[in-house]
Every structure is written in C-alpha cells, then in structure tokens.
Amino acid sequence: MSCWQTISDYGLRSLGIGEKLLPRSDFTLCQQFTLIGSGLIWNIYFGVLALVAGFAIATAVAVGKGSRNRLIRKTCEWFVFVFRGSPLFIQFFFGYFLFLGLKTSHPALAPLTAAAVGALIVLILNTAAYSAEIFYGALQSIPKGDVEAADAYGMSGFSRFRRVIWPTMLRLGWPAYTNEAIFLFHATTLVFFSGFPTTKQMGDALYYANYFADKTFNPFIPYPILAGYFILLTLTVTGLFGLVNRRLNRHLPAASGSKIRLRMPLLR
C-alpha cells in the first residue's frame, strides 16, 4: 500500500473520516506519521478555541480582580485560585463526572460528556484563569503616566479602557501570554487520558502515539514523531504570537520593544 493511499485513508481518521479500522499489524512509518498528524487536528481544535474564548474571559476576570467592588473582586480571585491551584488532570476528571451527573438529571445536556464540548469547557476555564493572572499582573504594571495622559485628553470609562489601558495591558502581558498559549497546546494532550472517552477511536495525537507504542511495544518511533509535530506546533504558535507582539509594539522605538523569550515553564 502506497503512502498516498495511507494518507487518504487515515489523514482525517481522527474526525471519523476514512478507513474505519485502525491498522492492527505491520505498522509502517507512514501510518504512524499520518495517524499521529491526524490526531493533531484535535489538539489544534482544543488549543485554538480555548485560546479565543479564554482570552475574552481572562480580560474580564483580570479587570474584575482589580475591581473596587468587593463581591466582584473576591469572585474573580476565587476563580483564579481554584483553577490555578489544582491540577488540570483532576479538573478534567471532576468536570467529566460532573457532566455525567448533569446528563442523568437533564438529558438535554448530554453533549457535555463528549470531549469535544466538555473538555473544551474545562480547558477554556483553566486557560482563562492562568491568562487572567498574567493580564492582572500587566494591569498592575501599566505606567501611571499613560493613564494620566488619557485623563488629560478627557477620556474616561470605557473609551479610556479600550484605547489606552487594554492595549498597554496586552503589550506588557504578551510575552507571558505566549508561554501560556504554548503550554495550553501541550495541556490539550491530557484530554483523552482523563476520563473523557474517545468515540470510535477518534483521539488526539498523543492518543494515537500511545496506541502505536502499546501495539508495537516500541516507544522509540511514535513518541519522537509526536515530539516533532509538537515542536513544529510550538514554533508556529511562537511565530504567530511574535507577529502580534510586533504589532502591539509598533509605536515604540524598535530597540525597546520587548522581545518574546521562552522562559519560566508554566505547565499545569
């Protein structure tokens, strides 16, 4: 069987399109590359959607954490504390069994037990908490002069936030947020190992890598393939976030624009 044939059979296998049965014996390198790559679709799905939704929530929570209203502030602080202080792995398990319970009492909520929805919700809340902490830190370190200048121009309320505070917050928090995005993509590999079941063997990249390692009892081929894919993914994320970083800093002299450096591991 040629490699092209394998790619057309298994290229979209993680979405349930193509050959029904996974290969069972005589595994070729091509099969391993194709299936693990196919599983990467799920990692990108979880990562991108969680980033987009998490970003919006994180901004709100970061602002709420700095709120003068005690109730709002405490709620936001607890949200961040619960999701940053406990392991994502346990959060997945808890979420899954919570959704199972909801399903029995309200059958309409059944889709929540599927990884595509339920795990995504957990990931969104988790990344929102981590990003909120980053943005909160950035909000705290906005130069006083910037806000005073906005006041002097007669801006206040929402327009001051949208035109001055928010862009500055993003600019200051962006390097740390890039790291968070990378570790979010890494965290997506946990989904199918933490309660959420796979349907018809449609799993993510690590699921297929683990499948091959279990079947061949040889971890030295599938895991390095997975590692290669993830290094590519990490480089892509760094590149895209670097472009945004350039845009955020475009009004500053080139030398003082903060460069994104990969530092401080932030995995959960």
């Binding site: 890494h186 590999t189 190992f193 690590l206 890598a209 895991y223 997975l226 590692a227 290094i231 995995l267």
Partner: peptide, 14 residues
C-alpha cells in the same frame, strides 16, 4: 520544554 510533559511520562516509563 518543547514537547508535552505527558508524552515524556508515557515514553520514559516504557
């Protein structure tokens, strides 16, 4: 640091 830690856990044990 470039690869998910879970992948390493599953890899190294075998």
């Amino acid at each position: 640091r470039g690869v998910p830690d879970i992948a390493f856990f599953l890899f190294f044990v075998i």
